[in-house]
Write a protein that binds this DNA or RNA. Structure first.
Length: 879
RNA sequence: GGGAGCAUAGCUCAGUUGGGAGAGCGCAUGCCUUACAAGCAUGAUGUCGUUGGUUCAAGUCCAUCUGUUCCCACCA
């Protein structure tokens, strides 16, 4: 009969995607006739494989882009990848280790050549995976953070910031990862709570008069102590200030001063703090204030350096143990206690961070932060939830200078050059001579830039900056930046201040922060736990549409989403429902019927007017929800409409008309009209199936992707039709309920007698007889002119606009009927009492909106009429 | 230490200007009704975490407590 398969099969997705690509539907170009709409993809790392988080974020962005594209915007979704400095370098180092090589052994150039090879081999993996899930990025514009153009942007930005004095080089305390052997920024430090030990020791005064005791969690840093500090107003120690104490760990001991600084908390511990400027941020500050010497005691690998005397060469842990032992031997160890405290660790490798003083490059943040903060406080930059804006503002308010140099090779090499004399020349183009002394023998800085430096420029570097391009003019600032909460300070903040700095404007107007996809128990998915879901496995089994629908449907965008397979099955089932609804329409077209699209809507049957009115309202709701970035709600509304209203009610209602050659064309017209609208509305969420079905339904159409988005039309609103059909649905539900309750066999046809409450209802029911018959599984519908004489074996049912009688003879137990009707009587009486209570409430009458009061009054009238009928039925039974 | 979120049906969750509690899954019952059993129909289940406050009206706003999750953080 039909060659369309009975079940939906997602295996054609690749083919559909290829066709879109081929036809260039994803491409966007400067077009003054259209308004621009742009989203810059958060570039995935080249080391990444598509995980469920990428898939979720991609789905969100793709919905927005596809909807806006259909709405007539020139919609650009800019794709690309990030070089992911440390992550990539670590991966490649691992790879070459298997060949017995080290990066130092290979040398910088050979190693980088190797990373580029690696990038070429694996860098496109993630891109292809994005395609697999239907992302409609403009792939012809794909960028990479280390491609030529972006490299130029990075150098330009560095040079300008340096020339303005915003980038400086200095010895500062930085976060040092002894495993990766590089500095990392504050944002990359994770604090992990763990059990630690607090050790209490004493130092003797140099004059031998007394001792002073203190506590530390890191005894090994005692090797770098250059002072002991107390609070200036602490009377207990007033006499000690200015005296010397002895750090005993060295052969001759080292004398260090007792200083007074208000940083010290008198209440905490003994009120004494040992000061190690080289290895603690606070101590560093105090060291600067008191001009204390800075003694670095640690090598880059975390072992004790030559300043550690007898401890030189030991690891951190070994040195700690030995110091405790030695202090104990000297009688200066007091006690140790277990405490909970947070340790800073590297977010990539989870190694404990060592604060070290190093010569590094920094970006001065104070001035850059101001306009970025202002952009938010002025309301220009918006977050989808205020609390995310607060996180943003809090970060900017507490910002410290950004350490931008990294001691790794993979990345943008810092464009600073040194001559023999040590002069620094910074230039985006490799200089031939020193800017200070003219020396020509120049050596470039070994360090590279933090990977986020180039990402910070992404919204404009991808559009051609520093060149003035028409793309920049047109698409910048972009519209939405979609990402997860933890990226706010890594990236969002930095894009904004760089955008303000170099473009004079925010990079995007809306920041959309979404939740995390977690496993079925609410746990974060992680490789080590092994609870991760591979999105490609989902695509393999159920298709990309089902994956996308699962991630979006019904989820509040800012809360975490639990992923479990039953949800995917539901999505798949919905795809199948949609598939079959369309298949049903197509089957009806197979006899050559030509649908008639009734332009004169008021002339259409009430069920058509109802579904058109309903679909019209849906368009408004969905459009509003998408504009508000509430995609879960938008999706759910479409799904509910298609399944509940369109399939379960409307399609059933028109079946009788489809069997009649005369009424069929018009019914087909409305079916196709409404279904096509649904497919358009759903297309951003499930692009593949909607394309397939839309083209099957609209033979002349080229694609649904570029079809105009449906628009809300106030003239199509038909509250009367909605009310009428609601009455009919209630009647049908009532009859079905009775059938089910009385266990009338499905095969048994029944007669439904309807006594309408007035002429208008009579007219309505008589129009709808054909489908009421089908929906109630009745053999006959009788429209009565008056209430029938009550009799045994008849069930009566009071609904809005009618009393319905079902002669079911022996199936009816009159006693049970009386109970049922009495229950109904009670319910209606309660409703009326409730409304009367409200209407008698002076406060309510005075302050509630008139609309609401009118609605309550109308309901009262309705309930009263129903109650009257129910009571009449009861009275009839008593007779 | 500071901040934020969440707590609604057995499970997972919607419920954004305060106006008579919802969905999916699961469960029960009956159906292969020629689009779909990946389906259809019918049904049962909630003191909307606690206590208080604002209001004519609170799942919704405010406060408190309890439980839970997350983020930030240099207290030795």
């Amino acid at each position: 009969m039909t060659n369309i398969p009975k079940h939906y099969d997602p295996s054609r997705e690749d083919e559909i995607y290829a066709r879109w690509l081929e036809r260039g539907y994803f491409n966007a170009a400067v077009n003054e006739e259209r308004a621009p709409y742009a989203i810059m993809i958060p570039p995935p790392n080249i080391t990444d494989k598509l995980h469920i988080g990428h898939a979720f974020n991609a789905a969100v962005q793709d919905v927005l882009i596809r909807a806006k594209r259909m709405q007539g915007y020139e919609a650009l979704w800019m794709p690309g990848t990030d070089h992911a400095a440390i992550s990539t370098e670590v991966q490649v180092v691992k790879a070459i280790a298997k060949e017995g090589k080290t990066k130092e052994g290979m040398g910088r150039e050979a190693f980088l050549a190797r990373v580029w090879e690696w990038q070429e081999e694996y860098g496109s993996t993630i891109v292809n995976q994005f395609k697999k899930i239907g992302a409609s990025c403009d792939w012809e514009r794909e960028r990479f953070t280390m491609d030529e153009g972006l490299n130029a942007a990075v150098l330009e930005a560095f040079e300008r910031l340096y020339n303005e004095g915003k980038i400086y080089r200095g010895e500062r305390l930085v976060n040092w990862c002894v495993k990766c052997r590089t500095t990392i920024s504050d944002a990359e430090v994770e604090h992990e709570d763990g059990e630690g030990r607090l050790y209490h020791f004493s130092y003797k005064l140099a004059d031998g008069s007394s001792t002073i005791s203190f506590a530390t969690t890191r005894p090994e840093t005692m090797l770098g102590d250059t002072a002991v500090a107390v609070h200036p107003e602490d009377e207990r120690y007033a006499a000690f200030v200015g005296k010397k104490v002895i750090v005993p760990l060295f052969e001759k001991g080292r004398e260090i001063p007792v200083i007074a600084d208000s940083y010290v908390d008198r209440e905490y511990g003994t009120g004494v703090v040992k000061i190690t400027p080289a290895h603690d941020p606070n101590d560093f500050e105090i060291g600067v204030r008191h001009k204390l010497p800075i003694i670095n005691i640690m090598n880059d690998d975390g072992t004790i350096n030559e300043n550690g005397g007898a401890y030189t060469g030991l690891t951190r842990e070994e040195a700690r143990a030995k110091i405790i032992a030695d202090m104990t031997a000297s009688g200066l160890f007091i006690k140790e206690e277990k405490i909970n405290h947070a340790k800073g660790t590297h977010d990539r490798c989870h190694e404990v961070i060592e604060p070290l003083v190093k010569l590094q490059w920094f970006l001065q943040m104070e001035e850059l932060a101001k306009p970025a903060l202002e952009a938010y406080t002025s309301g220009k930059l918006k977050f989808n939830r205020e609390r995310y804006g607060k996180i943003y503002a809090h970060w900017l308010n507490n910002i410290r200078d950004w350490c931008i140099s990294r001691q790794i090779w993979w990345g943008h090499r810092i464009p600073a050059y040194y001559c023999e004399a040590g002069h620094v020349t910074v230039s985006k183009d490799a200089p031939v001579a020193c800017g200070t002394c003219g020396a020509t023998d120049l050596r470039q800085d070994e360090d590279t830039l933090d990977t986020w430096f180039s990402s910070a420029l992404w919204p404009f570097s991808t559009l051609g900056w520093p060149n003035k391009t028409k793309e920049l003019d047109y698409f910048y600032p972009t519209n939405v930046l979609s990402t997860a909460q933890e990226i706010i300070f890594f990236w969002v903040v930095r894009m904004v201040f760089m955008g303000m700095k170099f473009m004079g404007d925010i990079p995007f107007t809306h920041v959309l922060i979404h939740g995390t996809v977690v496993d079925e128990h609410g746990k974060k998915m992680s490789k080590s736990v092994g609870n991760g879901i591979d999105p490609l496995e989902v695509v393999e089994k159920f298709g990309a549409d089902a994956l996308r629908l699962t991630l979006l449907n019904g989820n509040a965008i800012d809360s975490n989403t639990r992923f479990y397979w039953e949800r995917v099955e539901f999505s798949r089932n919905f795809m199948n429902k949609l598939w079959n609804a369309t298949r049903f329409v197509l089957m009806n077209l197979e006899d050559g019927s030509v649908p008639v699209f009734g332009e004169n809507i008021p002339a259409l049957p009430v069920e058509d007017r109802w579904i058109i009115s309903h679909a019209n309202a849906l368009v408004r709701e969905v459009t509003e929800k998408i504009d508000a970035h509430e995609l879960g709600m938008a999706t759910q509304k479409i799904v509910d409409f298609i399944w509940d209203e369109f399939c379960d009610w409307y399609v059933e209602m028109v079946k009788p008309r489809l069997r009649n050659a005369e009424t069929k064309p018009q019914a087909l017209g409305t079916l196709i009209r409404v279904l096509s609208r649904c497919l358009k509305l759903l297309h951003p969420v499930t692009p593949f199936i909607t394309e397939d079905l839309f083209l099957a339904l609209n033979k002349d159409a080229e694609t649904v992707m570029r079809a105009p988005w449906p628009t809300f039309d106030a003239e199509k609103e038909d509250p009367q039709a909605e009310k009428d059909i609601e009455a009919i649905k209630e009647l049908v539900r009532g009859v079905r309920n009775i059938r089910s309750e009385k266990q009338v066999p499905p095969g048994q046809k029944i007669t439904v007698q309807i006594f309408p409450s007035d002429e208008k209802m009579h007219g309505l029911f008589s129009q709808c007889v054909p489908f009421i018959l089908v929906l109630c599984n009745a053999s006959e519908i009788e429209l009565l002119g008056s209430a029938p004489a009550s009799g045994e074996g008849v069930v009566s049912l009071v609904v809005v606009g009618a009393t319905v009688y079902l002669p079911l003879a022996s199936l009816v137990d009159s006693e049970k009927e009386r109970v049922r009707l009495t229950k109904e009587q009670k319910r209606l009486t309660q409703e009326i009492t409730r409304i009367d209570g409200k209407l008698a409430n002076e406060g309510y009458m005075a302050k509630a909106p008139a609309q609401l009061i009118d609605a309550e009054r109308a309901k009262r009238v309705e309930f009263a009429a129903m109650l009257e009928k129910v009571e009449a039925e009861l009275k009839g039974m008593v007779k």
